[in-house]
Design a binder for these strands. Structure first.
Length: 484
RNA sequence: CGGGGCGUGGCUCAGCCUGGUAGAGCACUCGGUUCGGGACCGAGGGGUCGGUGGUUCAAAUCCACUCGCCCCGACCA
């Protein structure tokens, strides 16, 4: 009798269990996505986790370039005086910046801060670079790390240092800046839903949740498996706030000197956490094929003279798929048994597994196993590549549908505040409710239900006409949720 | 930053109350047999008990401080 004892994750801690948080941390660690380091709140992203991030980067970078954006790089350090220039901005970020007061063995005359975001280091440069309306728009993006001294951290979701892209654009008119802000918002939505199979709600943030220094902030919000919302990306219309603070001016078509209109927007490594929490299950990670480092893992069954029969076939299969652009890996390690590999690749979220053994060779077939569905399907060798391509697309679509359905069953349009409060208990989800637009109601709702106003989608018909909290006329129907 | 919990080989944990200087399972290494759902047998390697200071003849064990992690709040991509 064998009595293996698996470690915590797969047996006891599941996304459905009370301890979702523990499940998440287990997946991150056991799937080798990230690890803690000596520095509080700072994680090392391990190769497998980084590979996921790279795939996200590539997919997003392509989209950004396709819409005319170019990449550049700005420095890590910001003279503290610069940070102080935009007063709302400094108010928002000062409490979370890291300071550098010494360089080598010298005290710095002016301390530096490590960028929490780059608006203020970019501001003076844009002021230098932009002279004429002909220089506009400026559509620059950078891939970088930033540091925010957070009180509570969690791998990927909130770390002291994190990786992201931040776009910083400058425009001739308010209208263009607004268009850009919304263009990026929908680009983010499209990206999240297509590549990450993660349905998101796009909308505008309330005044209190706005980016420090922005005129308007928009976000995409996902709903993860424990019923909490995750802000997955933000796009800010900065108006002329930063242009005025940094003197970013140009001479217009009408010969007058004007301030530019700027935007900024970003998504971060938090998305990796979002994917884990959106799709993961009792066996671990479930990766959408588009961002899976190994879309297909081939596990040969070593029996009899498998080295002469199974292995060459498996290699041919791998090479054939790789030639078609499929990210495929042949797990021919001999120190692990097939069963061990099955469990391991499930834990690591590989979307599709191919089992190939002597029996399959005889029948000229393989066994396909979908990570999302789990069942084993025999598939003929002939036409296998096409079959696999189709299956990967199917898995991608199925994951999106599953996540969408989850969100829909966990989204409630409430009629009363009582209903709102009761939904927020346990594993809540989104609540859609009428809102009068006052910060007081928003704040009270937060205090009493822990739910925050995530955003106000703009492409919906207004249904409620009364604020769920105070009963006054509603200005719209925001989505509320407990959030990460 | 407030409340609570926890730090013992890579992981999960026992030992701590009632001080006498470290154990288990898994993982790892080597050899062999296995391999279609986390294999088995045999032989091995590895920790000074988060850190610092104190009490004591003696500290993983008691005390103080400190760092880190986790949970619940407040703050946040």
């Amino acid at each position: 009798m064998k009595e293996q004892k698996k470690e915590a994750l797969v047996t006891e801690i599941t996304p459905q269990s009370e301890d979702f948080s523990r499940w998440y941390l287990d997946v991150v660690r056991r799937a080798e996505l990230a690890d803690y380091t000596e520095v509080k709140g700072c994680m090392a992203i391990r190769p497998y986790g980084y590979a996921i991030w790279e795939l996200m980067q590539q997919a997003l970078d392509r989209r950004l370039k396709a819409t005319g954006h170019v990449n550049a790089y700005f420095p890590l350090f910001i003279p503290s005086g610069l940070l102080m220039k935009e007063k709302e901005h400094v108010k928002g970020f000062a409490p979370q910046v890291a300071w550098v007061t010494r360089g080598g063995d010298e005290e710095l005359a002016e301390p530096l801060v490590v960028r929490p975001t780059s608006e203020v280091i970019i501001g003076p440069l844009y002021a230098k670079w932009i002279k004429s309306w002909r220089d506009l728009p400026v559509l620059i993006n950078q891939w970088a790390n930033v540091v925010r001294w957070e009180k509570v951290t969690r791998p990927f979701l909130r770390t002291t240092e994190f990786l992201w892209q931040e776009g910083h654009t400058a425009h001739e008119t308010a209208e263009e800046a607004q268009e850009e802000t919304l263009r990026i918002l929908s680009l983010y939505k499209e990206f999240a839903e297509t590549e990450l199979a993660m349905p998101v709600v796009a909308g505008e943030k309330s005044e209190s949740e706005k980016f420090a220094g922005a005129a308007r902030t928009y976000s995409i919000e996902a709903l993860v498996r424990d019923g909490r919302a995750l802000q997955a990306g933000t796009s800010h219309n900065l108006g002329q706030n930063f242009a005025k603070a940094f003197g970013i001016q140009f001479q217009g078509r009408d010969k007058t000197l004007q301030h530019v209109w700027t935007t900024s927007w970003g998504v971060s490594t938090r998305l990796v956490g979002g994917v884990i929490m959106t799709h993961g299950d009792d066996s671990g990670l479930v990766l959408p094929p588009r961002v899976a480092p190994h879309q297909v893992v081939i596990v040969p069954i070593p029996r009899g003279n498998w080295r002469e029969t199974v292995l060459p076939t498996a290699r041919r299969l791998r090479d054939g798929l790789a030639a078609l652009g499929v990210r495929v890996m042949l797990d021919d390690r001999e120190e692990y048994t097939p069963g061990w590999k099955f469990a391991e690749w499930e834990l690591r979220g590989a979307p599709l597994r191919i089992e190939i053994g002597p029996r399959d060779i005889e029948r000229s077939q393989v066994l396909l196993v979908r990570r999302d569905a789990g069942e084993k399907l025999p598939a003929a060798m002939e036409g296998l590549a096409e079959r696999i391509g189709a299956l990967l697309a199917e898995i991608q679509a199925a994951l999106f549908q599953r996540a969408l359905q989850f969100r829909e069953t966990h989204t409630t349009r409430v009629g009363s505040y009582e209903e709102f409060k009761s939904i927020m208990e346990g594993r809540p989800g989104f609540v859609i409710a009428g809102w009068c637009g006052s910060e007081e109601c928003e704040a009270q709702i937060k205090t009493e239900t822990q739910a925050t106003l995530r955003n106000m989608p703009f492409d919906v018909d207004r249904v409620s006409d009364a604020c769920v909290k105070c009963g006054r006329p509603a200005v719209g129907e925001p989505w509320f949720a407990k959030a990460y």
